[in-house]
């Protein structure tokens, strides 16, 4: 079938089986390899993308299920100010070691800040509990989300 959806702000139409996983559609057909496959079973969050602004595991979604929807991947950082602010905060706070979990972490964090611009530390932990990181011990990742929150709030205030 032809899958039509909005990807990182642009309309896309691509021929693919409806039963193909979204992560395969993104990586193999659209060459967007920023989305990582960890467990392939929804347990690690490395493949997180935003579907209509909500974090989901792209390994557990089929191409037919995104037809007509809005998908944002880490490559959307180019066009999305909030994603960019979170990415910059991750760099500044030193939240990246091997980097494999980072795209998913940034998307989950950006979705949190969209819904809740000033989250508490506990709210950040809950929002990121579906994203595993085996390097950092999470503290610097939580710091980065707090930093991104400050940056976004400051920017909004100065407008």
């Amino acid at each position: 079938m032809i899958i039509k959806f909005k990807l990182n702000g642009k309309n896309v139409a691509i021929e693919a089986p409806g039963g193909e996983r979204l992560i395969d559609l993104l990586r193999e057909r659209l060459n967007l390899v920023g989305t990582k496959e960890g467990c392939g079973k929804g347990e690690c969050g490395a493949c997180t993308v935003l579907l209509d602004n909500k974090p989901v595991c792209s390994c557990l979604i089929l191409a037919a299920q995104v037809n007509g929807r809005n998908v944002m991947t880490i490559e959307g950082v180019e066009s999305d100010a909030r994603l960019r602010a979170v990415q910059e905060a991750f760099v500044e706070a030193g939240s990246v070691q091997c980097g494999f979990c980072t795209p998913g972490m940034i998307l989950s964090a950006a979705a949190l800040l969209r819904a809740n611009p000033k989250p508490s530390r506990d709210e950040i932990k809950r929002a990121l509990s579906g994203n595993l990181c085996r390097c950092t011990g999470y503290e610097k990742i939580f710091d980065a989300v707090e930093l991104a929150s400050h940056k976004i709030m400051k920017k909004a205030a100065s407008k």
Partner: peptide
């Protein structure tokens, strides 16, 4: 149950 990603689906 699950995580944010799982609960969203």
């Amino acid at each position: 149950a699950g995580s944010v990603q799982i609960r969203n689906r």
